[in-house]
Simulated scan of single mutants.
Amino acid sequence: MLLRIIDGAEGPGLVSLDTLRQISAAVEQDLADRLHALEIGAISQSKLDAETQARVAALQALSKALTDEVSARTTSVSGEVTARANADTAEATARANADTAEATARAQAISALAARVKALEDKPALKFMRFSELTNANGIATITFKQPFASLLDIEVLDTWSGEQLVAGGILTSSVTGCTVQAMISRGTLLLTAGPFTKAGANVSVTVRAIGT
């Protein structure tokens, strides 16, 4: 009789380990009964026939098959456990590395953002301010900034009106504390021999716009 050992259910030509154990136990019990009968004289030595010898051989074969199966399954389970442990370790290591890389990238992004915010906070705000002053007899206005700039970026004379005459001008000198302006005013009467503007007289209001920090 050929037996093939498998896990679980039985089928044609298939014997589970539990069935194999049951067969082995039955054969052992049968042999024990026969030996006992031989010892008490219930049967003679000649009764220990070929069938009994075949059963002994079958028991030995079953015992060896059971031992080999247990050994094979132990080796298989051990290898599977080791493989799973290695896979779990590799997965855990990969996840830890990914988490570390993500945390590092986020920390760098936050640090860069914080640096940009600080740079914006530290950057001086631009100031746009207007100042006005009257000209002297030569049409020059000396303007002192009531709030000095740390840095003067730009300054220009704004066109204004004095009655029906346009007041303009140009910057002569400038600094973070003030400037001087040559004021010009449009002529009331145009002459063919003169331009449309002339130097402003005294007490003409001049306005400048200054941009700085």
Score class of each variant (00 low, 15 high):
residue 1 M to Y: 07
residue 3 L to D: 08
residue 6 I to R: 09
residue 9 A to T: 08
residue 9 A to Q: 12
residue 10 E to Y: 00
residue 15 V to E: 06
residue 16 S to M: 02
residue 20 L to V: 06
residue 21 R to N: 09
residue 27 V to Y: 15
residue 28 E to Y: 08
residue 29 Q to L: 14
residue 29 Q to Y: 09
residue 30 D to L: 10
residue 35 L to Y: 15
residue 35 L to C: 11
residue 36 H to E: 15
residue 36 H to P: 07
residue 37 A to V: 04
residue 40 I to S: 14
residue 41 G to H: 04
residue 42 A to D: 15
residue 45 Q to S: 12
residue 47 K to R: 03
residue 47 K to M: 09
residue 48 L to E: 04
residue 50 A to F: 10
residue 50 A to L: 13
residue 51 E to R: 13
residue 55 R to A: 07
residue 56 V to T: 08
residue 59 L to C: 03
residue 61 A to K: 15
residue 61 A to N: 13
residue 61 A to Q: 15
residue 63 S to A: 13
residue 64 K to L: 14
residue 70 V to G: 02
residue 70 V to S: 03
residue 70 V to W: 02
residue 73 R to M: 10
residue 76 S to F: 13
residue 81 V to R: 12
residue 81 V to K: 14
residue 82 T to I: 08
residue 82 T to P: 01
residue 87 A to V: 02
residue 88 D to F: 11
residue 89 T to D: 14
residue 89 T to L: 15
residue 89 T to S: 15
residue 92 A to N: 13
residue 93 T to Y: 14
residue 94 A to D: 13
residue 96 A to L: 11
residue 98 A to T: 13
residue 99 D to G: 04
residue 99 D to I: 10
residue 103 A to V: 10
residue 105 A to N: 05
residue 107 A to D: 05
residue 107 A to P: 01
residue 109 A to K: 09
residue 118 K to H: 06
residue 121 E to I: 00
residue 123 K to H: 01
residue 123 K to D: 08
residue 123 K to T: 06
residue 125 A to P: 00
residue 126 L to F: 07
residue 127 K to S: 09
residue 127 K to A: 10
residue 128 F to I: 13
residue 129 M to L: 08
residue 129 M to H: 00
residue 130 R to W: 01
residue 134 L to I: 06
residue 136 N to T: 07
residue 137 A to L: 12
residue 138 N to I: 03
residue 139 G to L: 08
residue 139 G to W: 09
residue 140 I to S: 05
residue 140 I to Q: 11
residue 141 A to K: 06
residue 141 A to Y: 04
residue 141 A to I: 05
residue 143 I to N: 03
residue 144 T to S: 09
residue 145 F to K: 01
residue 146 K to G: 07
residue 147 Q to L: 04
residue 153 L to R: 07
residue 153 L to P: 00
residue 154 D to V: 00
residue 157 V to K: 07
residue 158 L to H: 07
residue 161 W to Q: 14
residue 162 S to W: 04
residue 168 A to M: 12
residue 168 A to V: 12
residue 171 I to C: 03
residue 172 L to G: 01
residue 181 V to T: 03
residue 183 A to I: 02
residue 184 M to R: 13
residue 190 L to V: 01
residue 194 A to G: 00
residue 195 G to N: 11
residue 197 F to N: 07
residue 197 F to D: 06
residue 198 T to W: 00
residue 198 T to K: 10
residue 198 T to G: 05
residue 202 A to M: 07
residue 204 V to M: 02
residue 205 S to V: 11
residue 206 V to R: 04
residue 206 V to G: 07
residue 213 T to C: 02
